[in-house]
């Protein structure tokens, strides 16, 4: 008898891969960037499906395929999740202390820098009316 295609293994694997590669999309929105719950949800769904698939493959091997490739796919999914967790919960938190950064009540250091139109902008120009919000960002290189 031909054994059945064990779809939860494949779908679970694809969902787990999606959990990793959708980060760039979800990082556009503060609500899914501050804490990556959307990605973690995809990983959780993927894990649940992989579990179902593995239970089928190992519990009823005469009926379902997937003992070997199911194990391989699950292993890859676990590695992807470890990479994701390392990046999100370790690498993203490696931020310099900036202990000497200007604090509340201190004067902001002056500067003169070119804007996107090539014109030089001084801190004093920005402050003229009621002050300015300065956003330092990592850049797009």
């Amino acid at each position: 008898m031909k054994r059945k295609w064990n779809w939860p293994l494949w779908v679970g694997f694809i969902v787990a891969v999606g959990g990793l590669f959708s980060y760039e999309f979800f990082a556009q929105f503060p609500i899914t960037r501050d804490f990556p719950w959307a990605n973690l949800l995809l990983f959780a769904i993927g894990a649940a499906l992989l579990m179902v698939g593995l239970f089928r493959a190992f519990g009823r091997p005469q009926l379902y395929r997937g003992k070997i490739f199911g194990s391989i796919l699950t292993g890859i999914a676990i590695l992807l999740f470890c990479f994701f967790a390392y990046e999100i919960f370790y690498v993203l938190r490696q931020v310099p202390l900036s202990a000497q950064a200007p604090r509340v009540g201190e004067k902001a250091p002056k500067f003169l820098l070119p804007a996107q139109d090539g014109k030089q902008v001084a801190l004093a120009d920005l402050l003229s009316s009621n002050g300015a919000v300065l956003i330092f960002y990592r850049g797009h290189w």
């Binding site: 931020v95 509340v104 004067k107 902001a108 002050g131």
Partner: peptide, 12 residues
Amino acid sequence: PAEFYVDANGTV
């Protein structure tokens, strides 16, 4: 990443 509000006197 860092954000500041600097008032008209240049004080953070």
